[in-house]
Design a protein around this nucleic acid. Structure first.
Length: 494
DNA sequence: ATAGGGTTAG
């Protein structure tokens, strides 16, 4: 009964049955506890889960590994990472599933860096079990998120050595991992060898090309997919449309958006619309993009307005920018970055009165910018830098190197552009300076950043790639930038 | 009875 409710749309009823069971003097066993927990996660009933935890301990089920693992997953799904870890630590016997739930917990709860370590912890013995296919899959997701190619490659080797090579879900994840680490060739190599590619495989590859700015190839893969008779789904179109927008393929994007509705009978969701708005905004069809948002059947969210605001910035469209801010305020979703963007629109238009007025408003509202962070991986070590970082152990050398690089770049014609209301050292500049400092000349630099790269840092990286003859790959929040010989593969800034 | 594939505009 509890099981039936847990799987249904009314999992809380499972709790009532569970409660009645207790009142009737029956002791729930591990199985009923597991099911009732699953229902709580779905409902977000954290306190109910905690009550079950208490009962589990009282009834002496703490030696039940399956139940404790279920409890871990319950805490993990409720966002209580620390409690999940506590249960894990208190377990006397941990099987591979318990370890996997731990990794899954880290990945789901933004502790991706902790997830990376688990693979080696399991392998170094003492854990009592070896990573299995699920461990590999989860760790690969973590590698993809953090752009840690080194470990991703080791997991790939492990997969080959342990006879998992034919697992479709692992291959699909490998394609995504290599794509997200900027290794498109490797991704394609894996993709090519998959015997029975399904919609997920194709979507992973399309997305790989898309996020690396190779929209045409993304479309080619999509055509090939259709020739092979695999039906695309909503996610395929999200990937495809984002590819069109990153590559500025307006006509292609429009055709695809049309065909997904007419040919494939799919209803566009907010992501699809978002890509179309981005695409139109990028090529300067700002008013059209606005009309798209207004005509949407679903309610516009803050992100889609922000996409349009970004386009207003690029094309210096003041009046529409102000209108967009109004929409964001109406949604009570305006953030520091939005005001900065509007500020930049005023600044580049030379509208100083508005600049002063907006600065005043921002001060009154107590708006601060949130610092972002960049990471660079060297020999398996992950080095993290924040804006104006002071915490990295080699920070003094980094600033010295950064100064030297800036002097070198100035000779080459680099002019620092002020993009926010104060001049600061963005985290990606620090990460790049550290990379130049800590690696031999000519080594490729791979940086991951949590926000979007600004035009100044973009210019900086572009120049650096030429002057220092270094290939630079920066993965920002939305896409990849491959810098080589003073150029970038993207057309975000022009 | 417990873990697990691709996507998500700025």
């Amino acid at each position: 009964m509890i099981r039936a409710y847990a799987m249904s749309v009314k999992p809380e009823r499972g709790f009532y049955v569970y409660r009645d069971m207790l009142r009737a003097g029956l002791r729930p066993n591990g199985v009923s506890n597991s099911f009732v927990l699953k229902g709580f996660v779905k409902m977000g009933l954290v306190l109910c889960g905690v009550q079950v935890h208490g009962r589990v301990l009282r009834d002496g089920f703490c030696g039940d590994g399956v139940l404790m693992t279920g409890l871990m997953d319950f805490y993990s799904g409720s966002g209580e990472c620390r409690d999940a870890c506590k249960v894990f630590d208190e377990m006397c016997v941990r099987d591979v599933v318990a370890w996997n739930v731990l990794v899954s917990c880290y990945v789901r709860n933004r502790r991706t860096r902790d997830a990376l370590g688990v693979f080696d912890r399991m392998r170094s013995g003492g854990s009592g079990c070896d990573p299995d296919d699920v461990t590999c899959l989860l760790v690969l997701q973590a590698c993809a998120k953090l752009c840690v190619l080194d470990l991703g490659e080791r997991v790939h080797e492990y997969i080959k050595d342990h006879g998992y090579s034919h697992y479709l879900n692992l291959n699909n994840t490998l394609v995504a991992m290599y794509s997200k680490c900027g290794q498109l060739d490797k991704a394609y190599e894996v993709f090519k060898e998959i015997p029975n590619k399904d919609v997920v495989s194709w979507t992973a590859m399309i997305s790989g090309f898309a996020s690396n700015g190779r929209g045409r190839e993304a479309i080619d893969v999509f055509r090939e997919m259709q020739r092979m008779g695999v039906l695309p789904d909503e996610q395929t179109f999200t990937a495809l449309l984002s590819g069109c927008s990153h590559a500025g393929l307006l006509d292609e994007g429009r055709l695809i958006f049309d065909s997904m509705q007419k040919e494939f009978n799919l209803v566009p969701n907010i992501h699809h619309y978002g890509c179309v708005v981005d695409l139109m905004g990028r090529v300067g069809l700002i008013e059209d993009a606005y009309d798209v948002i207004i005509s949407m059947k679903c309610k516009p969210d803050a992100t889609i307005w922000r996409t349009l605001l970004g386009a207003c910035k690029v094309h210096g469209h003041i009046t529409l920018g102000e209108r967009v801010i109004e929409h964001l305020i109406e949604l009570k979703a305006q953030e520091a970055g939005d005001y900065i963007l509007l500020l930049n629109i005023y600044t580049s238009a030379g509208n100083w009165e508005k600049v002063i007025e907006l600065r005043k408003i921002m001060k009154e509202k107590g708006i601060h910018t949130t610092p972002s962070a960049s990471t660079i991986e060297l020999k398996g070590e992950i080095n993290e830098f924040k804006v104006d970082d002071t915490t990295h152990p080699r920070i003094k050398e980094v600033y010295e190197m950064l100064n030297e690089i800036e002097n070198q770049l100035k000779i080459g014609g680099y002019i620092a552009e002020i993009t926010s209301d104060r001049l600061s050292y963005h985290s990606e500049k620090l990460a790049l300076a550290f990379g130049v400092l800590a690696t031999p000349p000519g080594t490729k630099l791979r940086v991951a950043k949590d926000l979007r790269i600004c035009i100044d840092c973009h210019n900086f990286a572009k120049m650096l790639s030429g002057v220092y003859n270094r290939e630079v790959i920066i993965r920002d929040r939305t896409r990849f930038h491959h810098f080589r010989e003073g150029r970038c593969s993207c057309n975000d800034f022009w």
